[in-house]
Design a protein around this nucleic acid. Structure first.
Length: 475
RNA sequence: GGCGCUAUCGUCUAGGGGUUAGGACGUGAGAUUCUCAAUCUUAAAACCCGGGUUCGAUUCCCGGUAGCGCUACCA
């Protein structure tokens, strides 16, 4: 039977890094096994869910290139299923009505905590006879429906990542299935949907481990077959606490905004908490760069690690530069064009010149934004000269000499890397100067930057006309 | 507090009863002198602690400690 898995985000926030990795693992697993990935929006918390967040989540998934096969299904539109499922559990004798109000429960919880007792529900409504409950309901009283957890014994499951995990039933609360307003809680809706959607594997964050026995109990009550659970350890911030806003960017989309290439982000995320094992490259080093096809081919639940991992921005930056370098410039161009559009920049060069410049710049790019900021001079004629670079390389006589050098280039009949270099070196010698001073000055005059590829390669990428103009006009 | 899970360089990780404990990112040093955010070379850097089992534990077992998660009519 082909596996069926799901990614089930709650639209109470954007798609964050942890959710994205869960989505990625589900996607890799589905693609690897030829299974089906279902997208399900868990929006039963009407207070906190929003349509806008749903769109944000979909945008994040699209950016990462994670497509799904079924859905998106919205839990808010599947309420009848949950009521029906709850009725089944009730009919099977595994649930009861609870007339305690939220306030009462809160008070009792506070009292229990103060007295040093565990703040679990005391099961008092479990004693209410069914007929009495029905009568009170008919009389207009509202009640929540709670699951009746077995008194003794334990509930366990075999996790694909963690192995056997067991909980004493005495530790499991009689949790609420249906709130008093008839809206299901998460505990019920997940199980109802996971059963209804015939899911075979549940791949989700390890923060759900403690919830799992509650779900296992419901599967049993429903007489449904248990799926395979695979809990994925959490992603932490540099201070080893759970990754959150205070660690900086946690939204996937913010990485797009930072000029990260989606494939680089995906590669980075895949290797956070998962490893294909030892795979050596030609130099005998462990491989880390994997394209999506390779990731799909290599992925397995067994490679997921059990311990939490820290999100390392430096490593992500490294993946990003690796991908930018490896991409053919034609493939990079559309991504760069987005950056240009963002800052309202329009290139004034031919497409061929642009791809050539991209190739030249790739090794020095840190992110896609560089192509719209630091590298502007290669694609158009309006650019700023970096003040630090000016101070360092355009001091004293240099600008004047560069203007003179410009007129020499204007008079040149040949313009190749070799001839451009020969001309400059001859000029430097003529003036009794080190070529380096002129080279560095020219670099700043031509690119506005103190850092750039080899100067004569830059000259060729710019063309004779621009070289002449920029050198002649430098102040 | 209770319950659950986890524990190899700063970080991501490989490995596994006997290894110089491997790689990557980052960091330090050097080279290149046409800049560096490119490239090359190079260095430092880890098995949480204590007991057991064993000829031998970083690896297996137990305990401790620490971290994380859960502890809602949130998901």
């Amino acid at each position: 039977m082909a596996p069926r898995v799901r990614f089930a985000p709650s639209p109470t926030g954007y798609l964050h890094v942890g959710g994205a990795r869960t989505a990625l693992f589900n996607w890799l697993f589905a693609r690897h096994t030829g299974g089906t990935l279902i997208l399900r929006i868990e929006d039963t918390d009407f207070e906190r869910s929003s349509e806008e967040m749903v769109e944000g989540i979909l945008e994040g998934m699209r950016w990462l290139g994670l497509n799904w096969d079924e859905g998106p299904f919205y839990q808010s539109k599947r309420l009848p299923l949950y009521k029906e499922t709850a009725a089944k559990i009730l009919a099977a004798g595994h649930a009861y009505y609870c007339f305690c109000t939220k306030d009462e429960l809160e008070q009792r919880r506070a009292a229990a905590t103060a007295a040093g007792r565990p703040p679990m529900y005391d099961r008092r409504c479990r004693q209410i006879p069914r007929e009495e409950a029905e009568r009170r309901l008919a009389a207009g009283e509202t009640a929540a429906l709670r699951f009746a957890v077995p008194e003794g014994g334990s509930t366990s499951f075999d996790d694909a990542v963690f192995g056997k995990v067991e909980f004493a039933n005495s530790e499991i609360e009689d949790f609420v299935l249906l709130r008093s307003d008839g809206i299901p809680t998460y505990h019920l809706s997940v199980v109802a949907d996971d059963v209804d959607m015939r899911l075979t594997h549940i791949i989700r964050g390890a923060d759900h481990i403690s919830n799992t026995p509650k779900q296992v109990l419901q599967y049993r009550a429903l007489g449904a077959a248990l799926p395979i659970f695979a809990h994925v350890p959490l992603i932490l911030g540099p201070d080893k606490t759970r990754l959150s806003k205070r660690h900086g960017a946690t939204s996937v989309i913010s990485y797009k905004q930072m000029g990260i290439v989606p494939e680089a982000f995906r590669n980075f995320l895949a290797l956070l908490g998962w490893t294909p094992g030892q795979l050596k490259d030609a130099n005998g080093k462990d491989r880390e760069i994997f394209g999506s096809d390779e990731l799909i081919q290599l992925f397995s639940l067994g490679g997921i690690s059990k311990s939490n991992s820290v999100f390392d921005n430096d490593k992500l930056a490294w993946f990003n530069t690796e991908y930018i370098r490896a991409y053919p410039s034609e493939q990079l161009l559309p991504l760069i064009q987005e950056e240009w559009a963002k800052v309202g920049f329009t290139p004034t060069r031919s497409e061929q010149e642009i791809t050539h410049a991209i190739d030249l710049l790739k090794p020095r790019a840190r992110n896609l934004i560089d192509f719209a900021t630091a590298f502007r001079a290669y694609f158009g004629d309006s650019f700023e000269v970096d003040p630090t670079a000016r101070e360092k390389f355009l001091s004293g006589q240099v600008p004047e000499l560069l203007r003179e050098l410009g007129s020499r280039y204007a008079a040149a009949t040949e313009f190749s890397e070799a001839s451009a270099e020969a001309l400059l070196r001859a000029f430097a010698e003529e003036k009794g100067l080190k070529a380096g001073a002129l080279i560095n000055g020219s670099r700043v005059a031509l690119t506005g930057q103190g850092v750039a590829p080899s100067l004569f390669a830059v000259m060729l990428a710019l063309g004779q006309e621009r070289v002449v103009r920029r050198l002649s006009q430098i102040q």
